[in-house]
Design a protein around this nucleic acid. Structure first.
Lengths: 304, 304
DNA sequence: AGAGGTTACGGGCAGCGTAAGGATC
DNA sequence: GATCCTTACGCTGCCCGTAACCTCT
């Protein structure tokens, strides 16, 4: 009598094409997967996986079974979502977070998760969005808050929040009268996110104009470091104002009006669209709600 | 993480309205059911069953859950049916059989079941059709071969086989020239199935005519006994010729042509239409196939 | 040699059956 | 008191993780 767990295991083995990867995805060991598949095949009296020293594919019955497994898992997940109480949702969610979010509302998110889903364990990994995207695709993450949608067939992208990028200067920096024109701006190094990220690329595109002096763009994967460098007067940084609320309030940093604008940083909560009941979907929705609240809070503060 | 077994247990508790009955249906004990339901409710964090010392009904969530459970079980059963090899089908099937079938092809059916589904255990109960029907409705049987369809919402009735009823006489009985008219026939006791059965009722209706002498109808729930009584010249019996092949061949009994006819005995394989994967459905289909074969065999013999 | 899957073994835990304990009619 | 469900307890058996082994590239 194959149970839900068998279906889950089989699904991930089939989808990821290997016992090892499936084991990783399901937070277990490879022998456990091996035994489960063996047991499943024995109980059904049917070979589901084509193998020859390596796993090569599914048998015809295996493909048919995969279809059923997917439908069953989907229905099962739907059921849990409809019936189960939030507190009873359990599991480990591997969450990847872009650093910007860490400096805005991640703490409140974690708190909220613990409050409403005490049985869920978060494994948080902070990294730059391209790495997060990669990790999502490789199934090493269940959920990520990162820049822009990950445009892949079975990825669910929920819009999360959007922060305008600002030019920020420390107290010792004299940029002259505002708005600061581009040619004056590039006299200073510009400090921002790492080379592989969207802001860096967009910024570089904007500054790489023949008429201008070649820009010096410094980057760090650590937002805190960018802030530190800005405070030390090393240059002008390009980051969302949202992450330096405290420094702005204390007057240690200031926003610099310029003649140019950069697109906003749009974050999404992105999670693989799986047929099994990953709590990730729930958390994604929760994050959306929370981000919306935060947004309201900001608007309120600004409107006062 | 509720598994298939939980759904099965919950389904039967809900449907039969009690832990005790569900335990019986699922071949287990009542505490096992109790614990399983408790665990399920705890994991979901939701009360599913309304109880107050006695089980009174389902909560709203329970009703919703029942709907999901039914859909999941149905899909699961469909999957097993599509994927699993016949040999891997296992379980205990409580089979009720009308005696007529015992005397025709039951032995071959049992043999066939053991050959194609060695993991299935049969629990066979021979009784008259009305009792079998009752037992089916009370979920004390998983499958029955009996007279006529059981017309109930979730009963699956598959036509099985049909035997003409014959008047049968022993060697010592002189009925005069054939075809024997009714008024001559009723001089002898007529021996047939018990009072609650269809043949008895139909026979009685036919013989209870004002113009005729009041009929003497003897009955026995044991076909063998009816045959014995017929051999002993106690009277004319009304049974299917199919069950006395041997006696006819040896000339110990003979069919009596009469001026009247009785409807055929039509048997069905009847099984409750459950969403879970009872092997009963499979066996019902198997029985159908076998009965058809037997029918062919008979036709062949007669045509020679 | 390294990656991927299978087999072997020991420990933990879930689920079952037996048996005793309420609660309600 | 009868019926039905719950709780307690000891046991079995399954499943997992560690580790060693096999087999191809």
């Amino acid at each position: 009598m194959p149970d839900i767990r068998d279906l889950e295991v089989f699904y991930w083995v089939a989808r990821l094409g290997g016992f090892r990867r499936a084991a990783e995805r399901l937070h277990t060991t490879q022998p456990a997967i091996s035994l489960r598949i063996a047991g499943l095949e024995e109980r059904l009296g049917v070979r589901l996986l084509e193998r020859g020293a390596r796993l090569t594919g599914l048998t015809p019955k295996g493909r048919e079974f995969l279809d059923y497994a997917e439908r069953l898992l989907r229905l099962h997940a739907e059921m849990l979502d409809a019936i189960a109480t939030p507190e009873s949702l359990s599991g480990i969610v591997r969450l990847g977070v872009a650093e910007t979010i860490v400096h805005t509302w991640l703490a409140r998110f974690i708190e909220r998760v613990h409050a409403t889903h005490p049985a869920i364990t978060l494994e948080i990994e902070v990294d730059v969005s391209p790495h997060l995207s990669e990790a999502l695709l490789a199934s090493r993450l269940d959920l990520a808050f990162l820049l822009g949608p990950v445009s892949e067939p079975h990825m669910l992208n929920l819009p999360l929040c959007s922060y305008p990028l600002s030019f920020v200067a420390g107290p010792g920096l004299d940029l002259g009268p505002e708005p600061v024109p581009l040619h004056r701006l590039v006299r200073w190094p510009v400090i921002t996110y790492p080379k592989t990220t969207l802001p860096y690329i967009q910024l570089r595109q904007m500054l790489m104009q023949p008429a201008l002096a070649p820009p010096r763009i410094y980057s760090s994967s650590s937002l805190s470091t960018i802030v530190r460098m800005t405070l030390d007067g090393i240059g002008v940084s390009v980051i969302p104002a949202a992450v330096i609320g405290a420094e702005l309030a204390r007057g240690e940093l200031r926003l610099v009006r310029t003649e140019v604008g950069l697109p906003d940083l749009a974050f999404t909560a992105t999670t693989p669209l799986t047929p099994d009941s990953s709590p990730a979907q729930r958390l994604a929705r929760l994050a959306c709600a929370l981000a919306a609240e935060e947004d309201d809070k900001q608007s309120l503060l600004l409107s006062i």
